[in-house]
């Protein structure tokens, strides 16, 4: 579909601007599907109308009609053709869905936490924020989403993405915004009293402005988003004095992780954290896997499941005891202890 007609369709259908490549792909499918839908409904309605006019009864006397029966095979053939069309949509939709979930290489990871009734954002190097999610434009971003209390849903209409935030679990979402701008974010899963006001703003900054934001400046776009009356609840969080990795260090001490895990490379009761991230682990089962963020969080929640060979099975679970943000912080801390830390990711 040529871009101009796509914009026209977007206006006709009241779709908001599409701020990413994926959103435009989804819109293209949307146009096909919705056009076919409207044509189908119209065709059936019109056919019925034509029959109605053509075969309407004159006078009140009913007249007998011919017995007309279409063999079932024709109906099934028709159904088969239609199913082919539906499956084509499904095929395209499925691929797009997978693309939405696949994180591109080098994506900026940001932790999103929904709680009644606000969105909190934390990334490895930027400040934590509430209600305003700041990302660089033209760079892949991966959101790791969870909730503190009940199910929420992180919804950005301009990106055509939505992902439930489920307590006790991380879900993820990836996108690359084309150009700078600010876009509304809603909570789409009913979550109680102020569900209708659980809004936030997604601000995409040009790379250099994003860099300044990391360094502490508040670019006007972010300030505006925070003060936008239409997007209430959008405000900048207290600027954290420490980075997320530093917070992870504090939390690791608080939860007693450091009683068993060292950070200097010496094995203790548990494996050391130095160089742990990204290294290959050998489990008691003989299975080998790489200690990524998934493995680390899994180990905190279900330590008995993927035991590493050579250590006693003594680690307690932290399921339900640690806040998701703290889990994320500790993972970031362990990440900062990898051997190649400091080099480009």
């Amino acid at each position: 579909m040529i871009p101009a007609s796509a914009d026209l369709m977007r206006d006709v259908l009241f779709l908001p601007e599409a701020a990413s490549r994926q959103a435009r792909d989804i819109d293209a499918l949307h146009f096909w599907v919705i056009s076919a839908t409207m044509l189908g409904a119209l065709a059936v309605g019109l056919t019925a109308l034509v029959f109605l006019v053509k075969y309407r009864r004159m006078g009140d006397r009913p007249r007998p009609t011919r017995f007309i029966a279409l063999p079932v095979k024709y109906e099934l053939a028709m159904a088969g053709l239609l199913l082919g069309l539906f499956l084509a949509w499904w095929f395209v939709g499925y691929r797009q869905m997978i693309a939405l979930q696949r994180a591109p290489e080098g994506a900026l990871e940001i932790y999103v936490t929904g709680k009644q009734w606000m969105w909190k954002f934390a990334s490895a190097d930027g400040p934590d924020t509430v209600g305003v999610l700041v990302v660089p434009a033209a760079r892949p971003v991966r959101l790791l989403i969870t909730a503190r209390d009940v199910v929420h849903s992180f919804f950005v209409p301009a990106l055509r993405v939505k992902q439930d935030a489920i307590p006790g679990r991380y879900t993820s979402l990836s996108f690359t915004i084309d150009r700078p701008g600010s876009f509304p974010v809603y909570c789409a899963e009913y979550c109680g009293l102020s569900h209708s006001r659980m809004w936030a703003t997604l601000v995409a900054l040009p790379p250099e402005e994003y860099q300044r934001w990391l360094e502490g400046a508040v670019p006007p776009a972010v300030g505006e988003a925070g003060g936008n009356a239409d997007i209430a609840g959008g405000r900048l969080g207290e600027r954290e004095a420490i980075s997320i990795a530093q917070r992870g260090e504090q939390q690791a001490a608080r939860y007693g992780c450091l009683a068993c895990h060292t950070v200097d490379g010496q094995p203790h009761i548990g494996p050391t954290w130095r160089g742990l991230f990204g290294s290959e682990r050998v489990l008691v089962t003989g299975q080998r896997l790489v200690a990524d963020a998934a493995y680390l969080t899994q180990s905190m929640m279900r330590p008995m499941e993927d035991l590493v060979a050579g250590y006693p099975p003594v680690m307690p679970t932290y399921q339900g005891q640690m806040e998701p943000a703290d889990v994320a912080a500790i993972v970031e801390y362990i990440k900062s202890l990898r051997h190649d830390a400091g080099r480009a990711p």
Partner: peptide, 28 residues
């Protein structure tokens, strides 16, 4: 007749929301 028209439109939008990537936007 109303049913036919509305049901086809409703049903076809049902197929639309069953198309996964589209449903991501439309869900809820």
């Amino acid at each position: 007749l109303a049913f036919l028209f509305l049901f086809v439109f409703g049903g076809m939008t049902g197929v639309a929301v069953a198309t996964m990537s589209l449903d991501v936007h439309w869900h809820d």
